[in-house]
Design a protein around this nucleic acid. Structure first.
Length: 213
DNA sequence: ATCCCGAGGG
DNA sequence: CCCTCTGGAT
């Protein structure tokens, strides 16, 4: 498919998904930027439903960056254990919190460059924070769902999430990047799942190059 | 057996 | 580029 055709194809996909999921939004529970940052770190290779089961206790025990930075490791690991990768995640949470205390007055920074310097925070997590805590459209969140659907829609052959994002950005208007991320995530979870996509009920069936394969 | 809103290290 | 980290759900 040529560049012009790919662009209109992208616009049509976005239009249809917006009709289907007008309320698509971040499904991680949070009340502050710090809470969203913690929840997003926990979301690696874990369902957001599972993350939402442990964060109430996490937020209650460690109500600030300073409290989280001083957390007892064994206690913290116990609280987040069911989300998987719990040793790495505990280290990331404490290291991230300590960096906030040391370099940002205990607050979550608002730029990509500062966010990805935080331990355990990569480009995907940074895009979640910028888009959903601060309302900024700095990029597209490329998680497992967005990467999978981008491939199935024929937008890219890349698998590296940074390259997938680079391929997606020029296809969609900047002011919709955060919303578009949620549209793909919602569609990925509800219809275009990894193991057995439900093409028979998909609103994009007639324009999807991967339909019924 | 495979996947879930990844990141760090080699 | 690869590998490792981990429990829970299907």
């Amino acid at each position: 498919m040529g560049a012009a055709a790919l662009f209109s194809h992208a616009a049509e996909i976005e239009r249809r998904l917006l009709v289907e999921y007008p309320d698509a939004h971040c499904e991680l529970d949070f009340a502050t930027p710090l809470q969203l940052l913690e929840a997003t770190i926990l979301s690696a290779q874990c369902t957001d439903k599972r993350v939402n089961m442990v964060t109430p206790e996490l937020f209650k025990r460690y109500p600030s960056a300073a409290a989280l930075a001083d957390a007892n490791m064994d206690e913290l690991e116990t609280v987040i254990r069911s989300t998987g990768f719990y040793r790495n995640k505990a280290k990331s949470l404490v290291g991230m919190a300590q960096a906030l205390v040391d370099d940002h007055g205990g607050e979550v920074p608002r730029t990509m460059a500062e966010l990805i310097k935080l331990p355990g925070v990569g480009r995907k997590t940074a895009n979640v924070i910028l888009g959903n805590a601060f309302g900024l459209n700095e990029g597209i969140v490329v998680d497992t769902h967005v990467a999978r659907l981008a491939t199935r829609f024929g937008f890219t052959d890349e698998t590296d999430p940074v390259k997938v994002e680079k391929a997606l950005l020029p296809l969609f208007p900047k002011d919709s990047w955060t919303k578009f991320s949620h549209l793909l995530i919602w569609h990925g979870r509800r219809t275009c799942d990894a193991r057995k996509p439900r093409c028979e009920g998909c609103s994009l069936r007639d324009i999807c190059p991967s339909a019924d394969v």
